[in-house]
């Protein structure tokens, strides 16, 4: 009896250290943040001295034009970069999914940007966007065109950060799509060729539908990441000019450090957290649905045989 009990406890015993680390490193800060979001808290105060204001921070934020603007910028940024990256990444994968000499070198080159630290990417692009010594404007000038205010004009600045993000993260979609493509059933492709589907029609009718599960998860992963983007934009524009590139994570950091409104910053973080949790759940739900469907099909096949 006792031995049976001890046996049942063993797995939890092994899990305990990990659970402890999780609690200290993850749950405690999140709980702290949620608690802080209900306070009117100035960094000069200890947390115990801060005044409890209930949902005031959350309600204030809903009518705060700057917050709404930056929420909108974040949405716009994520939508634009992820759409373009999906098209480019999947397109590149479709192009490079073939056996030509040197293709493996090319594939490696394509995924290099993803491996560079975001801060470095930001610095690199800032030099390239530099109004007078940057390579873009020097090239434009030498070709006889007007220089472009890459980072100093609102619309151009947004385009600039979008370009940098696309440069860095298209490879992520590229390698996942390529992996998906290469695991497609080869004989189904051949059957399609014999049935008369070549080139575009093979892509539209066979390849893309079969890749869809991977593409949907890739899209959600990339969206979650795009909502949290910080470093590259911080280095490139620091949110400016005006609020044109001020994404939520920048706004949060400024609210906490510049405006010294810790409670409000925490409330903002929670809004972002809610958005990300929804996306994450969407991904889990999709995976669950796919699994359930496969299980149902398999069961039907067994009954049918």
């Amino acid at each position: 009896m006792q031995i049976a009990n001890a046996n049942r406890l063993t797995p939890y015993l092994f899990l305990a250290p990990a659970a402890l680390v999780m609690t200290v490193a993850l749950l405690y800060p999140i709980g702290y943040m949620i608690y802080a979001s209900f306070l009117d808290w100035n960094p000069s105060q200890r947390i115990g001295e801060a005044e409890f204001v209930g949902l005031r921070n959350y309600i204030n934020l809903l009518s705060d034009a700057a917050f709404l603007e930056s929420f909108f910028v974040t949405l716009k940024f994520a939508a634009v970069v992820v759409s373009i990256e999906m098209v480019l990444g999947v397109g590149l994968a479709l192009l490079l999914d073939r056996n030509i000499r040197g293709m493996s070198v090319l594939r490696t080159l394509f995924i290099l940007p993803m491996m560079i630290a975001p801060i470095v990417v930001g610095l690199m692009w800032r030099y390239m966007y530099h109004p007078s010594v940057g390579i873009f404007n020097r090239t434009l000038k030498s070709l006889g065109f007007e220089p472009i205010p890459w980072l100093s004009d609102g619309s151009w600045a947004f385009a600039s950060v979008v370009i940098a993000d696309i440069w860095q993260w298209t490879p992520f979609i590229f390698i996942l799509s390529l992996a998906a493509l290469q695991s497609l059933p080869q004989s189904a492709m051949e059957a399609a060729r014999i049935d008369g589907a070549t080139g575009w029609r093979q892509i539209v009718y066979i390849k893309l539908p079969l890749m869809m599960p991977v593409l949907i998860v890739t899209l959600l992963l990339r969206l979650i990441d795009a909502f949290k983007v910080l470093e590259v934009i911080l280095v490139l524009t620091n949110g400016g000019p005006g609020l044109s590139t001020e994404i939520l994570s920048l706004r949060i950091s400024r609210t906490a450090s510049e405006f010294r409104e810790l409670g409000e910053a925490a409330a903002m973080s929670n809004y972002l957290l809610i958005l990300l949790v929804i996306l994450t759940f969407a991904m889990f739900a999709y995976n669950k649905a796919v699994e359930a469907r496969t299980a149902r099909l398999r069961k039907a096949a067994q009954e049918g045989s």
């Binding site: 059933p185 004989s187 189904a188 051949e190 059957a191 399609a192 066979i206 079969l210």
Partner: peptide, 8 residues
């Protein structure tokens, strides 16, 4: 085909 190669 040997593995039928149906479009799943």
């Amino acid at each position: 085909f040997q593995d039928y190669a149906l479009y799943p």
